[in-house]
């Protein structure tokens, strides 16, 4: 977080988009951190909504509009709702639960910090002098995405539909209560 904050100081011709990106990024990251550390389980899901929504804004800033809307629709609209349902169905306690984190917390922290340090070092080292050109034609409008999707990616797209169907059937089979066999 401090790194991102330092970057926001602007040592390289900070433009408006960059400033907006960094600010939203800080918010997103903060929401994510709260989401994985909060003691209240339902709050964690809600903070996740904030983090995912922040990511959708980032997509918009990167000119990928279509993906931004898909992100909002699927993640914020369905996935988080599913997660909330899951929490309720597993009788998650409402309010603060002191044992939300497992005993593995410190090991997890060490691993995560080490991974973060490594990744950030490598990424900064690799892309120190690379700029995105956001001024040209729009990269991710619904039209452009649709053309590329249905012109070049039709086959994976269709295969994905089969996968979704399989997941649907699987989820039903797994979660239904087989009363006949239990009794």
């Amino acid at each position: 977080m401090s790194l991102a904050a330092a970057a926001s100081q602007g040592f390289l011709s900070p433009s408006g988009v960059e400033i907006a990106f960094v600010l939203v990024g800080i918010a997103t990251l903060g929401a994510a951190v709260v989401s994985v550390t909060t003691k209240q389980l339902v709050h964690a899901a809600l903070w996740l909504v904030v983090a995912l929504g922040g990511l959708a804004v980032e997509y918009l800033l990167l000119t990928a509009e279509f993906i931004a809307w898909v992100q909002v629709l699927i993640y914020v609209g369905s996935v988080v709702v599913l997660l909330l349902f899951g929490l309720m169905l597993t009788k998650a306690p409402i309010g603060r639960s002191p044992d939300a984190d497992s005993g593995n917390r410190w090991a997890a922290l060490a691993v995560a910090v080490a991974a973060a340090a490594t990744l950030v070092t490598v990424v900064i080292d690799a892309f120190r002098s690379t700029w995105l050109d956001l001024d040209g034609a729009v990269q991710g409008s619904a039209e452009v995405t649709g053309i590329s999707l249905f012109r070049h990616w039709v086959l994976p797209f269709e295969a994905l539909s089969v996968l979704l169907l399989a997941a649907l059937v699987g989820a039903i089979v797994l979660s239904r209560i087989n009363r006949g066999r239990e009794r």
């Binding site: 977080m1 790194l3 991102a4 970057a7 390289l12 433009s15 988009v17 960059e18 990106f21 960094v22 990024g25 997103t28 990251l29 994510a32 983090a51 990511l55 980032e58 990167l62 973060a116 990744l119 950030v120 990424v123 900064i124 892309f127 120190r128 690379t130 700029w131 995105l132 956001l134």
Partner: peptide
């Protein structure tokens, strides 16, 4: 825009 911003954000997330 500098590519480092989204890359670092992704890594941290």
């Amino acid at each position: 825009m500098h590519l480092v911003y989204p890359a670092v954000l992704a890594a941290l997330l």
